[in-house]
Write a protein that binds this DNA or RNA. Structure first.
Lengths: 240, 240
DNA sequence: AGATATTTGTTCGTATGTATT
DNA sequence: TAATACATACGAACAAATATC
């Protein structure tokens, strides 16, 4: 891979680590990079574009503008990672094998570390999806709102790794084609058990009963997986 | 974000999903893309460069060349994701909170699904790091070889998600700055317990004793975490 | 508020490198 | 070996965005 622009991109990237550049630092301007690498404008621009596509830098026009080192937004990282799994053909079983392990740990580790405001966020996340359903479109929205509770839990967790992986699993449930189809069908069973567990989890979090939180989330995940697997089976048999 | 090249990149990306293009499909040639988007050469090239940086396409020169849809290599996905955590300041605790949950599940789910060849791979992974240590440099190599066993386990696992996350945790242990430092110091305790657990795990996998596998890996992770946390503490106090 | 200067973004034409036939 | 088809690199002119006065 002797491509010049790629070489420039990786050299600039190694600047960032070697000089310990932090978000906000600005890289040399285009014209200086052109001179430094003695390359053409387009070539340098392609190099910057690579870094931009990976989320490492952002650019601004105008005086004082240029390319700035940036902290990759979570959304960007989620979308970059989902590309990797696009051709991997994930199943409900695959996703829940991780959720079963991680969601209980995440909820438990949060126990006792939530202030009143955090608990309030969780409460509103639950109420969002308690409202009655009118149209078919709202049906699907309810399925998504069901996940909001878990998204809030992930947001509140101080472990960036755990938080990210859980959010990624949630994004798969939201965006994966077959999950999309599963969620589009009415699913009162999933709705009822989901709501029950979320309310019970909220109470246990208020009580700071860590073991109960963990245990409830384990049961919640097992129940959700069971229902989702059934829907997945139905979906597959309908296709044949 | 009204940038033309980004808009072109995301339109091409949506072609890939809408037309269900699979790895190997080739996109229109540069000149056709230029015509289709009625944009300049450099602009279209920057768009392709974005997709390339994200691993979605690769390009080839020469007749029959062009941009081809590709399956993102695992290495590429690992490196893209590690960018996200570069500024996140992860700790041993963060990493092991996930390893504690996932490694036992991974090993257990493998139990009974390994053929003779797979077991052979595991065995050689263990023996790699049993050889005696001569130089200081080999000391560090030994620390890395210790992880090879877990990498093989991840490779063998049929769940792409579980496999990827475990590999990512391993790549953090290898590449993160402070882990690097921890691993550079002699650590006979980590070495001995590691080797003990890996051999015990191998035996349990041969015996297809799933509960024992899970239990051993849980203890292995707890032991490793304990030692790593101590080293991390030492390192931090040395810096002050 | 408006003009200006600065910096990235886009255009276009040309030349070079590389793999296929 | 030569011809062809394609990406890659070059460079100068122009457009758009934005901070400053």
């Amino acid at each position: 891979m002797g491509k010049r622009s790629d070489a420039i991109a990786s050299e600039i990237k190694s600047w960032i680590v070697e000089q310990n550049l932090t978000p906000g630092h600005h890289l040399p301007q285009e014209k200086d990079l052109i001179e430094y690498f003695s390359s053409a404008k387009s070539t340098v621009r392609e190099a910057i574009k690579v870094l931009q596509a990976q989320g490492l830098v952002t650019t601004r026009t105008g005086p004082g503008g240029g390319a700035f080192v940036t902290e990759i937004p979570q959304e960007k990282a989620l979308s970059l990672l989902s590309n990797y799994f696009y051709f991997k053909d994930l199943s409900i079983k695959d996703i829940y094998q991780l959720r079963r392990q991680l969601e209980p740990e995440m909820a438990a580790s949060l126990c006792g570390n939530l202030d009143a405001h955090d608990l309030e966020r969780l409460k509103t996340a639950i109420t969002i999806y308690s409202s009655p359903i009118a149209t078919q479109e709202e049906e699907y929205q309810q399925r998504l709102n069901e996940l909001v509770f878990h998204e809030v839990l992930a947001d509140l967790n101080p472990n960036p790794l755990l938080s990210f992986v859980c959010r990624f699993l949630l994004s798969l449930l939201k965006n994966l084609d077959f999950c999309h189809k599963i969620y589009q069908k009415p699913n009162p069973e999933l709705f009822d058990t989901g709501r029950y567990y979320q309310m019970a989890l909220y109470d246990a979090l208020v009580m700071k009963d860590r073991d109960k939180v963990r245990h409830l989330m384990q049961k919640h995940m097992l129940a959700a997986e069971k229902i989702m697997l059934e829907r997945e089976r139905e979906l597959k048999s309908n296709l044949q």
